[in-house]
């Protein structure tokens, strides 16, 4: 009988996948995702696209908030910077989309250096407030730089064509999002098990102790900021392409809250949690709408008129309920279930 996980070497401890069934299920999931664009109708496909794009963004925030423990309330600022970098490079200056994606990563990363470098003196709440301020300032900067960004009029963005492959159809664009999300997931999992990732977690758990252990706090906090902004920027570019129109209104402050809600619901500091959280948070408004419309048509009408408000109310409610009753998120719940399953009928 398996009574626990006995890891004997360091390699086993940091292995990405530690048991054959997990390999099997991951492969099944990947195959399902590859088949999905052919099987789903366009309505369901749009949800899949949103989930993949949001996963990328949530994984980006997870590096900063989940691993390193630095709260950012202004991640939508990096999202919008990435989207604009892509839109300006590709739609305005007709660069190849790959250059656009690179720019969508690099520009927010540079912006994060500007915000991050002075913010490093700050901790917790204060950092949350500076990032919040950043996201408002960046919106004004974008609106004021009319010669580059068209101000409030926004920029039209076409679906890209990369290396001769056109990503114009929904199915093809879903594949692009899938590739980016999978690469991001793989990258964050690998960061987590590297020296840098361990330093991030050490800073989160106790920064004074981490410093005593010889971790250069400033450098590693900046790494976290830059990596996180890079990934978030690319998610922003994808989101801009999905919307096919980049404007300041397309990236409301609510997205920052949504990203934090995803991390809390999924379980802070876990890549799996970011993925699970994204699925729940993206599908929650739709699931609630369907559930309520079963009861009465009037409820359904309320949902269509006040969709945005109901969505934000749901996010708020989910944040509060999870923090209150399941602070470790879905991942924590999953671990509890697994343990109960293995040890049943014993408690532990």
């Amino acid at each position: 009988m398996r009574t626990g996980d006995y890891k004997q070497t360091y390699g086993e401890l940091v292995a990405l996948i530690d048991s054959p069934p997990v390999w099997l299920w991951s492969a099944v999931l990947l195959l399902a995702l590859i088949a999905a664009p052919y099987l789903l109708n366009s309505y369901a496909l749009s949800f899949l696209m949103i989930i993949l794009i949001t996963t990328t963004g949530a994984l980006g925030l997870n590096i900063l908030t989940g691993y390193t423990g630095l709260i950012s309330l202004g991640h939508v600022g990096f999202l919008v910077t990435g989207a604009y970098a892509y839109a300006v490079l590709v739609s305005k200056y007709h660069m190849p989309p790959l250059v656009g994606f690179l720019g969508a990563g690099v520009v927010p990363a540079l912006a994060s250096l500007i915000v991050g470098a002075p913010s490093l003196r700050l901790k917790g709440l204060y950092l949350a407030i500076t990032t919040l301020a950043f996201s408002f300032i960046i919106n004004t900067v974008i609106l004021e730089m009319r010669w580059l960004t068209n101000g409030a009029r926004g920029i039209q963005v076409q679906r890209p064509e990369i290396l001769g492959i056109s990503f114009d159809s929904d199915a093809a664009f879903t594949y692009l999002c899938l590739v980016v999300a999978a690469l991001t997931l793989f990258a964050t999992l690998n960061i987590r098990r590297s020296r840098v990732g361990r330093a991030f977690v050490a800073i989160r758990d106790n920064d004074t102790a981490a410093r005593v252990m010889g971790i250069n706090l400033h450098a590693y906090k900046l790494y976290a900021f830059v990596t996180s902004a890079f990934i978030t920027g690319i998610a922003g570019a994808l989101y801009g392409i999905y919307l096919s129109f980049v404007s300041v209104e397309g990236f409301p402050f609510l997205l920052s809250i949504e990203a934090l809600a995803i991390l809390i619901v999924g379980g802070l500091g876990s890549a799996l949690g970011a993925v699970l959280g994204t699925i729940l948070i993206v599908l929650l408004p739709e699931a609630t709408r369907v559930a309520f419309s079963l009861f009465s048509a009037q409820m359904d009408a309320t949902f269509t008129t006040g969709a945005q408000e109901l969505k934000s109310m749901l996010y708020g409610l989910v944040i509060i309920l999870f923090l209150r009753f399941q602070p470790r998120g879905l991942v924590g719940a999953w671990h509890d279930i697994k343990r109960a399953w293995v040890h049943w009928p014993l408690r532990y």
């Binding site: 949350a128 708020g316 409610l317």
Partner: peptide, 25 residues
């Protein structure tokens, strides 16, 4: 939320803010 970490309580106020804001509408 008394006795929970500051991060959790502050996030609760953020959640509350979103709920109240929408409730007004």
């Amino acid at each position: 939320m008394l006795g929970e970490p500051v991060f959790a309580t502050v996030m609760v106020t953020i959640g509350l803010a979103v709920i109240l804001r929408s409730a007004i509408n």
